[in-house]
Nucleic acid binder design. Structure first.
Lengths: 192, 192
DNA sequence: TGAGTATGAATGAACG
DNA sequence: CGTTCATTCATACTCA
């Protein structure tokens, strides 16, 4: 079962990690509480997939009531949740035509599998399929609603990148397997 | 990132994936070696943010000694590194309180808490901001190295790297100190 | 207690 | 350049 979302395990109720310490910083990752997970899940079910920065901030602040949390946790949570749902769906729907001898040996352009992930397949586990996926979810109708920001991204066609990549991607300087001696980094970074 | 920056896991040390296969092999995405990461990081710390095509070429060539690499990898690395450092500043912030209701139902919870410590504050690298951000970095001067296959270029490129820390680590966190009543989730999600 | 799994975190690659 | 996707690593947790 790669998708058992039934074990809640009530973690973080009595004690969260990252208790004391403060210096070791030895990988204490966020451990969401059940309330936090519920909130996040509800938001996700409501259609929130990629919250904006402001939204993340608000969510994070709300969740902070239930325990230590940071914005990045919320960010990662949605990122992972969305990705895994998609991944799960893909896995399931892939069992259809198992003729995958795709001989792609060029630049790994994975565009083929990017824009289509909605085959009318519904094997078992028809997890809540198409949600609304609203993208401008009104978060916490609190006092202010300074969300009048219009996403005007992709407003500049910066050819620079494409040019950069294209001009350099085929820079097959032979070598690569050479055996020329390399000085230590310290030397080569002496200018630092 | 003071929370997980140290997880280098020494990938690519003993064996890189994508063996000498070159390109047509099964190689997935570039997996930088520790040496490569170090070099790149050093360059970044030195202020290099947006290397020019020539610079990318040189860096890539240098790094090719430590493992398979293409110019586009270097290009992407800088793009990502720069973008993420900035992203962190934006997304990270929100002082995370830890004011949970803490009802007295702290489940036994196996008392198997692993000793994790984390700085009670500063989680996503809020430091290291007074970097030089030099504009034109001279790559690999190769002062006294017995290697003359490269000619030190003095290409003067105008890179206006004004990436400056302008996002004050704000914490709009207003009040909500200790007794702020939290309505049930259903209420707060009423907008759904 | 170790194998298997769920998931937080990180990052290479690429899009708009 | 900001954002998003896909993949991978690391770890917390469950269970036999």
């Amino acid at each position: 079962m790669s998708s058992g979302e039934f074990s809640i395990k009530a973690r973080g109720l009595g004690n969260n990690n990252n208790g004391g310490g403060g210096t070791g910083t030895k990988c204490g990752r966020w451990n969401p509480t059940v309330e936090q997970v519920k909130l996040l899940t509800d938001l996700f079910k409501a259609g929130l997939r990629t919250p904006s920065t402001d939204q993340i901030q608000k969510i994070s602040m709300e969740l902070s009531f239930y325990g230590k949390i940071e914005s990045k946790n919320v960010f990662y949570w949605f990122q992972n949740h969305k990705a895994r749902e998609r991944q799960k769906r893909r896995k399931i729907s892939t069992v259809d035509f198992d003729h995958r001898q795709d001989t792609n040996l060029s630049i790994p352009h994975r565009d083929n599998i990017r824009h289509h992930q909605q085959p009318p397949k519904d094997t078992f586990e028809a997890c809540e399929k198409e949600e609304k996926v609203i993208e401008t979810l009104q978060l916490f109708p609190l006092s202010n609603v300074e969300r009048a920001r219009e996403n005007t991204t992709a407003a500049r066609h910066n050819e620079y990148i494409r040019e950069q990549v294209n001009t350099t991607v085929f820079s097959t300087y032979s070598s690569c397997g050479a055996e020329m001696e390399h000085p230590p980094l310290d030397l080569r970074l002496s200018f630092l």
